[in-house]
């Protein structure tokens, strides 16, 4: 009996490995990386969502953030993008707007509008691996990391028929705090279900997709979490009112609409 089980398991494993090998060959690592990037940041011509952010500091304290995010792709190459982030919470920054013109290969253009003083401040480029609004997500986690910043390789041994497992090693290690990060990418949807960051061989930071919904035909992560394994702190994001292809005009991403928020698109 025991023998049968072992044989069965071995056989199954072999089949799985063969299958994995076969499908992995269908796509190059480059293609996997591009599709994953597309699914994570570029689905639809534009999109909007209301985001509830709960920051848990690991010591019992929590902070809430809430914002509406409008996004528009500005080319067909999954590169140029514009973001408009309208804050609802915390209340001391209510109706503050953060706008980004995202570029690949050069620094993003970023603005902050402070309503109480009517100031449009242009923000200097910052270390992209700095906390986004005090959360455990980095600025780069929210807007995307340029693909050519890392070398990507398929971890054959761990890739199975559910996940592609990619190991990503930075080309300029001095610009980041990790040695490498691994992504478990769901084969069917190209959603990275888990992303683990390693330093000195130890995983210290982890992003997880907690819930996925299909919205207008797009598989969409509607709940996710970033955990700092060193402090136990974590930030959870919950997306609601997700919509794609709303016909968002490009002019929304200008100073006019920083000062006069496009209410019809924030509904």
């Amino acid at each position: 009996m025991k023998r049968t089980w072992t044989t069965y398991a071995l056989a199954l494993g072999l089949v799985a490995a063969l299958a994995a090998g076969a499908t992995a060959q269908d796509l190059t690592v480059d293609e996997i990386v591009k599709k994953t990037n597309h699914v994570s940041y570029y689905q639809g011509q534009d999109g909007k969502a209301r985001v509830q952010m709960t920051i848990n500091d690991g010591k019992g304290g929590t902070r809430d953030r809430e914002f509406i995010i409008l996004r528009r792709n500005r080319d067909d190459k999954d590169e140029e993008q514009a973001f408009y982030v309208f804050f609802l919470q915390p209340l001391d920054v209510r109706q503050m707007v953060f706008m980004v013109h995202k570029h690949i290969g050069k620094d993003d253009d970023r603005w902050l509008y402070q309503r109480e003083v009517d100031v449009v401040k242009r923000i200097a480029a910052s270390d992209k691996r700095t906390s986004f609004v005090g959360s455990h997500f980095f600025y780069e986690d929210v807007s995307g990391r340029a693909l050519d910043e890392d070398t990507h390789e398929l971890v054959e041994a761990e890739t199975d028929d559910t996940f592609y497992v990619l190991k990503n090693t930075p080309k300029n290690p001095d610009t980041v705090e990790f040695d490498y990060f691994k992504m478990w990418i769901h084969r069917e949807s190209f959603i990275p279900v888990k992303v683990s960051y390693y330093k000195g061989g130890e995983e210290y930071r982890r992003a997880e997709a907690l819930e996925v919904k299909e919205i207008q035909g797009f598989k969409t992560v509607t709940r996710s979490r970033m955990t700092d394994l060193r402090t136990g702190g974590a930030t959870e994001l919950a997306y609601s009112k997700v919509e794609y292809d709303t016909g968002l005009p490009d002019e929304i991403f200008t100073e006019r609409y920083l000062k006069n928020p496009p209410r019809e698109h924030l509904r």
Binding site: F163, V193, V212, K213, K241, R267
Partner: peptide, 23 residues
């Protein structure tokens, strides 16, 4: 560590819940 993650709801092989736009 290196464990493969569990699939989250919506990717777990079952019917992906088609969520209508809530707007």
């Amino acid at each position: 560590g290196d464990a493969a993650p569990a699939l989250p709801p919506g990717l777990d092989g079952g019917e992906a819940e088609a969520a209508a736009p809530e707007a």
